[in-house]
């Protein structure tokens, strides 16, 4: 359903809703996956991002997002200098991710303290984005809702347990997607929520013995 405020918006730093605002949002999602500003970042641009990214400030917008700047933050223009000052070492490369990848795709490899995350994001136009891969697991994260991403041992009852914790906190689950590389191996869960998950729910999930990693992603759009 189209919202009036999606049409009269977003408020953003130009010049392109896909190459600038969308790129910034992918950076913001990457930042929440490592829990803050990374110390090292590798930005691999694909397709139109690689071809016209420089003129559109795609590199600045991605780095700005990693620094926590929203799409309407004028500091995006100076994001590369700010990154140098704040100790974010970034490297921008051009690549072909795969032949039929979306034309505006980027792969980010982020390191913060002892956490490393690799994600692939697409900018779909009008500032809308989608993460399609996190650490090699296929996902679908839009950032339009609050999102929890977690890696857990694949065992019976795990999904029910997590849904139960969220339900107890009064958090409504909008979508859920589980993927795994092999049976009995690690399962990768992406939960999109209508409400922000409280600290209590997150702590409870984190203390489950079979959950290896939990990340709460900010809502970056909508």
């Amino acid at each position: 359903m189209v919202s009036l405020l999606d049409i009269i918006g977003p408020v953003m730093v130009g010049p392109s809703s896909s190459h600038t605002a969308g790129a910034c949002r992918i950076g913001l999602l990457g930042r929440s996956l490592v829990g803050g500003t990374p110390q090292r970042a590798r930005l691999e641009l694909h397709g139109s991002f690689a071809r016209t990214g420089e003129g559109h400030g795609t590199d600045k917008a991605l780095v700005g997002g990693l620094l926590g700047f929203k799409p309407d933050d004028e500091r995006i223009r100076d994001a590369l200098d700010i990154a140098d000052r704040e100790g974010l070492a970034y490297r921008v490369e051009k690549t072909t991710i795969d032949e039929d990848a979306h034309p505006n795709t980027v792969r980010l490899t982020l390191e913060r303290d002892d956490t490393t995350v690799e994600l692939v994001g697409e900018s779909l136009g009008a500032g809308r984005v989608r993460l399609t891969r996190i650490d090699g697991f296929p996902v679908e994260v839009s950032g339009a809702l609050w999102t929890i991403v977690l890696v857990a041992r694949d065992q019976p009852g795990s999904i029910a347990r997590i849904c139960g914790i969220l339900a107890d906190e009064g958090v409504n689950l909008a979508t859920m997607r589980v993927s795994r590389k092999e049976r009995g191996g690690d399962a990768f869960m992406v939960l999109e929520l209508d409400d922000p998950p409280g600290d209590q729910a997150l702590t409870q999930i984190r203390t489950l013995e079979w959950v290896r990693m939990t990340r709460a992603l900010e809502k970056v759009a909508g």
Partner: peptide
């Protein structure tokens, strides 16, 4: 790269 309202798009 100044601030605008993308209404309907930045372009």
């Amino acid at each position: 790269m100044g601030v605008i309202v993308a209404a309907p798009t930045a372009g």
